[in-house]
Amino acid sequence: MCKRYMGVISMLLLSFHEKLHLAFAVLSLTGGSSGVAVADVTIDACVAQNSINHPSLASDMQSLCALSSSIGALVGFSISGIFIHLIGPKGVDGLLAIPAGLVFLVGTLLNEPHSPNFAYTQVVRQNFIDARKSMWTTLKCPDVWRPCLYMLH
């Protein structure tokens, strides 16, 4: 729940604070980015879960998410300069609070079933062990990690 607030608070703080110290501004932008990253990971987890339930649609769901993200980025980059000239940087930060607020609203309205007798500790521990084994298996295969080095360069 705290991560949902982070994006809204950071954008509003940048928008309304007159003389914000540089360290707090960087911290606020970092918080906003982490809020977006959490939303991104949540969507990826939903796509992964639905891919398990509907394997024939897995590639279509991933393509749709990538397409939506790319279109959103292109539209955002295209109009960001125009909005900075029209309403200024603080206005743009205030405008960026709207998507963060919508993510918060959706996260609040989603109804997840509660399982009171679920053994979270055992499941988390086993998932961590499985993830560690999978990561080690992946790292042993240079065909997988070598392209990542080219992307970082």
Rank of each mutant, 00 (worst) to 15 (best):
Y120I: 15
W136C: 03
G94A: 05
A66F: 02
I52D: 04
F104A: 09
I84C: 13
T138W: 03
A48S: 03
T138N: 07
L67T: 15
V144A: 00
V75Q: 10
P147R: 07
G91C: 07
N127Q: 15
V41S: 07
L152F: 07
V103L: 10
I84Y: 07
L110E: 15
I79E: 11
I79D: 14
G35K: 01
C46N: 08
Q49M: 02
V144N: 00
P99S: 06
T108K: 14
F128H: 07
P113Y: 01
M61S: 05
D130N: 15
K90Q: 15
H114R: 12
G91D: 14
G88T: 12
P147Y: 06
T121N: 08
V124T: 13
A97M: 05
I84E: 11
S78Y: 09
P142M: 04
T121K: 14
S33L: 11
P55V: 11
I98R: 05
S70Q: 14
C46Y: 06
L105Q: 05
Y150C: 09
I79L: 13
G35H: 00
I71P: 06
G32L: 00
S115W: 12
C141G: 01
A66H: 08
I84S: 10
L57Q: 14
S70L: 13
M151I: 15
G94N: 09
C148S: 11
V36E: 04
P147S: 10
V123E: 12
P89W: 12
A119T: 11
V36D: 02
S69R: 14
S78P: 02
F83V: 15
V103C: 07
A131T: 12
S115V: 03
G107M: 04
W145F: 01
K133P: 00
A39N: 02
D130W: 07
G35E: 02
D130Y: 02
E112H: 04
L57H: 02
W145M: 05
W136N: 08
